[in-house]
């Protein structure tokens, strides 16, 4: 299997100038993710899980170390040092990110949100609409919600929309940032089913989860984090 992502000696800390504080978030992280694999990272709040994911997506600026990603467009590229426009391209075409909160443009319906992701890839509007409707159906979002603004949706509905938006691009790498954190048990199970479905479809995923039990039997590899380091 091809290596899709190789994180080498990644360290990240935050300097809060006004408070004269320096907070170390993660240290010396090494992870290898092969194509089609699903790796889960667990750990308590504040253990540095999200920092790793955000460093890959470049919402955080990695401080030390390298994040080698095997891109379709650029070949092997170090996400820790890649140019901003390259990262924007990869976000639009190759790397999806699903967070626990849905962050979208206001005054945009759920169908338009998903459509927009397709238009960003350079496809025309009609095709985007067709594809959006297909995927919303695939992820079982009630048809009557397609033309509504998602701020009225339940946690589970928002998450399904969030996953649909990320998955419509058929990303080569999907990052899942605690997608189950704010959900009740029934919705959690539904997410587990969705992840299983994605896995069967061959999506390479790196996910962080609070709840170790929830992950049982789903991940190819599991890492546990504590105080910014991987403990197993």
């Amino acid at each position: 299997m091809m290596d899709l992502l190789r994180i080498e000696n990644l360290s990240k800390s935050f300097t809060l100038h006004n408070l004269r504080k320096h907070i170390s978030a993660c240290e010396n992280i090494n992870i290898l993710l092969k194509k089609g694999e699903f790796i889960g990272i667990t750990g308590r709040s504040g253990s540095g899980k999200s920092t790793i994911l955000k460093s890959i997506y470049r919402t955080n600026l990695p401080e030390w170390g390298d994040i080698w990603y095997n891109s379709e467009r650029f070949g092997l590229i170090n996400l820790a040092r890649a140019k901003e426009r390259e990262v924007i391209y990869l976000r639009k075409h190759e790397i999806g990110y699903v967070s626990q909160f849905l962050s979208v443009m206001p005054r945009t319906t759920s169908c338009q949100i998903v459509e927009q992701a397709v238009v960003e890839m350079g496809k025309d509007k009609e095709y985007a609409k067709e594809e959006a409707e297909k995927i919303l159906k695939h992820f079982d979002l009630d048809r009557e919600l397609w033309d509504s603004y998602p701020n009225t949706f339940s946690g589970g509905e928002k998450l399904r929309l969030n996953i649909a938006r990320a998955m419509i691009k058929r990303p080569r790498l999907l990052l899942l940032d605690e997608p189950t954190a704010s959900l009740d048990n029934t919705s959690k199970l539904r997410v587990r089913e969705l992840i299983e479905q994605l896995k069967n479809e061959g999506t390479t995923m790196l996910g962080i989860f609070h709840d170790l039990k929830f992950m049982e039997g789903l991940c190819d590899k599991e890492f546990n984090m504590d105080k910014g380091i991987i403990t197993n």
């Binding site: 935050f14 300097t15 809060l16 100038h17 006004n18 955000k54 470049r58 919402t59 955080n60 600026l61 901003e84 990262v87 924007i88």
Partner: peptide
């Protein structure tokens, strides 16, 4: 930088 990076992980004291 990327807008989300500037907002979530600002580096300069003034940006923070």
């Amino acid at each position: 930088g990327l807008t989300d990076q500037i907002l979530e992980d600002p580096q300069h004291p003034y940006t923070q």
